[in-house]
Design a protein around this nucleic acid. Structure first.
Lengths: 354, 354
DNA sequence: CTGAAAGCGCTTACAG
DNA sequence: CTGAAAGCGCTTACAG
């Protein structure tokens, strides 16, 4: 069972390799008649085109690397699907890997992708990444790259994300309109190694609340990874304190699910005793109990945009770097809609584990 | 900026290409002293190993295709992460694509992956796939392949999945112990083009319920894709009928979330007025309101197993096909735990949209 | 529209 | 432990 190669097809057709190659590429330089004949023979012989060999010659791989942290996060899953769809439509196949937010793992993934000669890379950087370790993706020498969701100071590359500051601000204004008096921001990786997403959301929220004279937990407090379990734990800690907040704003909807669960555990009614909101507007937000107020961050649109930016970059490596920022949108649901500060006042007396 | 190749490194070191190639492969046939010197020069010159070129020569690509339907499903996301981790540890990189459960798209993905000379493929088949269209993955000629979650009649390939029949049976026995009298199975793609997963879960449930003389909605009724929106819609239809069931079993937890939401809309208490259960035991099940009884189907374990099966298959293409089935586990939570048929009796009188 | 020839960057017996 | 040579399967000017 020797592999069938272009040469074999050419021999069977009585043509040269060049002509058959033209057919394989569907070039207009081969006649339709020749194409039909050659294709018939290819099918009969079970010929399979070898892109790797072709790529060696052409210098393009028709592969693009997509390096994410973890696709179990629904936001990242949406992003992934949109990126894949946009790039596949242009003929590219995705080489995917997950960094688990570990820089060493990310480093190895970049090596692999670059060694496989990916024509471009879309990267959602691991927390704490710096320009130095990503230099292989920096212009003008590096592999064409688009950064997504998290920007890297000092790295010259295209970038796309939702406007996290605007997202925080939208929510802050809504809470101000509600008459909230104190707000805790919980979950999400923070500190010097934190995500630019959390920083932005916090900053926007802080700005809007400040205008209303509303108290906000200190930046960098109540941080954690971004799972429901983290939200649950932090909420129990918060409500064990002297002065629980009127509102808990979660870094993401995933975290908010844990917050809602903890409140239920304590016999508190989210949306009445205490307001809750999140970010991302994942599908589950609508189905939460109560339905969760959330700021949509449009991962599908972000992914599609990243694909477009990378295609443009690969087509023209010289074009100036572009940042494209997506506007967020607030979805108000029961978890805040029915809240008033008066219902919240009851909380300071009654909040305790049941 | 010509690309630096092995030859350039060799010249700079005063060695031959062969020796430098040995170093690139970290072969024991090169002395440690030589390796150190060569690596230093590689770094200085900015040499990047070209796997594509190496692969052309060796006949292996060190890439594996992973073709799924849609990674936004948390079950598939877990599967993906586990597959990636298992294969990367063995040095493989994943070529990923999503079929959206469309056979034409799946067809194109398989072509791409095969043309890129992937050393193997892990496939979660699109609904309705048959052995004919997957022949490129069939033994002994085709690319080594492992089927995951859905089997294909007549296709000789390795296969791994959870035991869906056992999963249905576990849940059925639990419902029998509860004293349920009528059960509706909702959601999931069914019919001749349905998923083998739904068929298995239904069959196991039916078997266990039959032993207790409990009524079950006809196989193939209340089918749909597997989203929360589908669960919501079907639940409203069900409860609009004359004789609503004691229990709603959802094809998946995602569907169950929609069921819970619809019940809330109608002012019914899940777990008291009507019992609800799902499959997969996704993270959200614990955080649902009420926490959802669910049968764990272990996507992480399934993915890790698929990776192991594929590694074994690639190492020995001649070994006989292997099917490896994972045992499910039932997690009982409030959505069924507090249910008794007596509370349910109220339902037939009181169920109506509020 | 088609053919002969060179070459993409690597590896691998083989000989020393 | 190291070097000279052939070759993996394709593409692409170039000439006809």
């Amino acid at each position: 069972m020797k592999r069938v190669i272009l040469q074999d097809v050419a021999a069977a057709c009585g043509l040269s390799r060049s002509t058959v190659s033209l057919v394989a590429q569907d070039s207009p330089r081969a006649s339709e008649q020749t194409k039909a004949r050659v294709r018939k023979v290819m099918a009969e012989l079970g010929y399979v085109y070898d892109r790797g060999a072709a790529n060696l010659r052409t210098g393009r791989s028709m592969m693009v690397g997509l390096i994410m942290t973890d696709v179990r996060n629904p936001y990242f899953a949406d992003l992934t699907m949109a990126v894949e769809q946009g790039l596949r439509a242009a003929g590219y196949t995705l080489l995917q890997g997950y960094s688990y937010d570990e820089r060493a793992r990310q480093e190895r993934l970049i090596s692999t992708v670059v060694e496989h000669r990916a024509d471009g890379v879309i990267l959602l950087p691991a927390i704490g990444s710096d320009a130095g370790e990503l230099r292989r993706l920096a212009r003008p020498q590096g592999t064409p790259a688009v950064l997504i969701a998290r920007s890297i100071k000092g790295l010259d590359a295209d970038y796309t994300s939702v406007d996290n500051v605007a997202a925080g601000e939208l929510l802050g204004e809504h809470l101000r309109d509600l008459g909230a008096r104190s707000v805790a921001f919980v979950g999400g990786p923070a500190g010097p190694a934190g995500s630019t997403g959390r920083e932005g959301r916090y900053a926007g929220l802080a700005r809007a609340l400040k205008r209303g004279g509303i108290a906000l937990s200190a930046r960098g407090r109540h941080t954690s990874p971004a799972t429901a379990t983290d939200g649950e734990r932090i909420t129990h800690e918060l409500l064990g304190n002297e002065n629980p907040p009127d509102v808990i704003v979660a870094y993401s909807d995933a975290v908010a699910m844990g917050v809602l669960h903890a409140l239920r555990d304590r016999g508190l009614r989210a949306g009445a005793d205490i307001a809750v909101a999140g970010f991302d507007d994942v599908a589950e937000a609508r189905y939460a109990s109560p339905p969760l107020t959330s700021v949509a961050t449009f991962p599908g649109e972000t992914g599609a945009l990243a694909a477009r930016l990378l295609l443009a970059r690969m087509a023209d490596p010289q074009r100036p770097s572009e940042s494209s920022i997506i506007a967020p949108r607030l979805h108000i649901r029961e978890s805040t809609a029915s809240f008033t500060p008066d219902t919240a006042r009851l909380l300071t007396v009654s909040a305790r584990p049941r």
